[in-house]
Design a protein around this nucleic acid. Structure first.
Lengths: 259, 259
DNA sequence: ACACTCAACACGTTATAACAAGTAGGACGA
DNA sequence: TCGTCCTACTTGTTATAACGTGTTGAGTGT
């Protein structure tokens, strides 16, 4: 192994394999050479090749499977979660929406609903007091039979208690906006705060992704005027999802557009 | 080390430390016990404690520094990139916008602009032919002197060539929307496709984040009616940024709201 | 008082060794 | 033909050992 600039061997090997992945020499789903092969190829010990592959795994380029080998991970996420003006005039918009419906998007999910009390965090987001009663609903969404999205939502019971839409699911109307419409509350806007982080063990297990892959965590709140109506924590694997936001740009603004 | 269910020792140790982080026994910026300490505490070899800490590092809970130790990573991102109706009636909206301006947001950036031709990918996004001339501008944004956001934008020269706003920077108007307004093109909406992934080596270096931390990659395109006007690739460290999208919800829609 | 040196300590890199556990395919028997 | 078993191959886990490199603070000399 040529020792270039004293740069650690495992990083050089990682660089080498990475460029093979990026330039297409190694394609998605291809198996990497086994650890034994790499040891022989580069003339290093096993720990070096393991470190090298671990770097690539941590970058999300490679997945490892005990007993089978290490594989180049498919890079492109397939599904798009669209938020915004679905009826945009943009012609490219329709393929997305169409594919979302076409690719087996039978609304497939399971949920668990229960009454509970608001934690401080949730209370802040809903503009209520910690300890106030809320309806908590956990969803697990599936796509092609695979778990694809996790969501936990909270609604203040002060709003829905005693109404026909107290239960988020099971009634004749579903979806926050129509449900609230049904009791005379008209959602005016939604805020989604998006962060990226590595999957927690629970999420990795539930979403069936390798530990450490990046996920997108969305903190979503629906508002009627300035009043928070519902808030939810949503987690999707960034492997499988692109979040697509489509926003109108109001004409004649003095405000500099955020870059 | 009590061998619980044959679960690997390094995972048990990782679980142990993780719960200490999550329950607050170990707080942000605290130093973890050194590898030697952990070896003694749990009665295992160094490779086991290194594997354990590596798990936490890969989850983004811990950062390691050679010569100093391993530290609990501060979890909450500080900055918010807001897209959407800044003049929302929501009272909580103002603190965000205010803090964005207050926290030393002197518009601090450097850029490089050059004429080039569109790659296939960019041409598709701009609705032009590959090889058509475009203006390419790379930005590096700083916050508190630290690089915080990378962006590369493309505009078809067919639109701006020969106009006063051919150069994205340096003129009297800046920002895509005002610049295009100035030549009679009125941006109607913007699409942002957000994905999460691990930082590439170049990005990790440029953004000064440890390799492997998740970043958010945004593919943004501005449209005037259905015509793409500008497209950009934006990368931010998810350590430091929350993306906040504020969208109006139109009244009386039959369309089920995307969950 | 200040700057320099150096040792102690932290994590980083690599080698060798052994056994565990999951996978796949071929051999073999019913 | 079909299912079982076994074996070879793969990654997973752990131990021991040694040396490299970055950090820090105590001690020392000026």
């Amino acid at each position: 192994m040529a020792d270039f600039r004293g740069r650690p061997a495992y990083l050089q090997i990682a660089d080498d394999i990475r460029s093979q992945i990026l330039d297409g020499t190694l394609q998605a789903e291809d198996r990497l050479p086994s650890e034994a092969d790499l040891m022989a190829d580069y003339g290093v010990s096993r720990i070096v090749v393991r470190n090298a592959v671990e770097v690539l795994r941590s970058e999300g380029l490679v997945v490892k499977q005990q007993g089978r080998g290490s594989f180049v991970r498919a890079q492109r996420p397939q599904r798009t979660r669209v938020v915004g003006d679905l009826y945009s005039e943009r012609p490219e918009a329709s393929p997305f929406a169409a594919s979302a419906r076409a690719s087996g998007q039978v609304p497939e999910w399971e949920y668990q609903t229960r009454r509970t009390t608001a934690s401080k965090t949730i209370a802040d987001r809903l503009g209520i007091q910690a300890g106030d009663p809320v309806m908590r609903t956990s969803y697990r969404f599936f796509a092609d039979g695979e778990p694809a999205m996790l969501s936990t939502s909270f609604e203040p019971l002060a709003i829905t208690e005693g109404t026909p839409v107290e239960q988020p699911e099971g009634g004749s109307v579903t979806g926050v906006v129509p449900r609230m419409d049904a009791i005379g509350i008209h959602i005016t806007h939604v805020v989604e705060d998006v962060t990226g982080r590595s999957a927690r063990p629970y999420e990795a297990e539930t979403l069936k992704v390798p530990v450490g892959v990046p996920v997108l965590a969305i903190e979503r709140t629906y508002y009627a005027k300035s009043r928070p109506i519902e808030t939810a924590d949503i987690v999707v694997s960034s492997d499988r999802y692109v979040l697509s936001y489509r926003l109108p740009v109001p004409p004649r603004t003095d405000q500099p557009t955020p870059r």
